[in-house]
Computed example of a mutant assay.
Amino acid sequence: MSNASKAKGTRYESEIRDFLNARGFSVRRVAQMGRLDHGDLHGYPLHIIEAKSVKSIDLPAFVRQADKEAINAGEPFGVCFVKKTRGATADGYAVRSVATDIRLIRRMRDMEEALKDAAFDRWYDIDEEHRRAAA
């Protein structure tokens, strides 16, 4: 990999980190660790993020890498953020396998049910807040 490609990837990792942190997360870049790599970004709840800013998009390889690095990092979910050419950070793509997405949605469903059972008023307030944000 050329230094220009590495610099491009580092810029995108920093873009993603700054974008997420501006939205209330505590994401940080981490050092690469060779075959035991732990992903590019940590601090996105339950995930590692593999960030890709490349001309040639290889989704199967990106997803495999994110899943492997999530295991290495001890996180349940891997996701690959792929930069959209000439697009804003928010216009990029979050990519994961269907199997990973199902595990994530099941966990969210189960945790929502648990919160609803334990503290219905809190669940209701959170649900309303997110419904308003989506409108």
Rank of each mutant, 00 (worst) to 15 (best):
K83T: 05
R86K: 11
R107G: 06
V95M: 04
M108C: 08
K84Y: 06
K84P: 05
A90R: 14
T85V: 10
S97K: 05
R106G: 08
A90I: 06
V95S: 01
D110Q: 14
L104F: 14
D91H: 08
K84M: 08
I102M: 04
V98G: 03
D101W: 04
R103C: 06
I105Q: 09
D110G: 07
A88D: 13
G87D: 12
G87C: 14
R96F: 01
L104M: 11
G87P: 13
D110L: 12
A90T: 08
I102Y: 04
S97G: 06
G92K: 07
T100W: 00
G92F: 08
I102F: 04
R107L: 15
E113Y: 11
T85M: 09
I105M: 08
T100Q: 13
R96L: 10
A88L: 13
D101E: 05
R86A: 11
A90Q: 09
A99P: 00
I105F: 06
A90M: 09
R96P: 00
R96W: 00
V98L: 14
T89I: 12
I102D: 02
V98Y: 12
G92E: 08
V82Q: 00
T100V: 01
A94G: 01
T89V: 15
A88V: 04
K83W: 06
R103N: 10
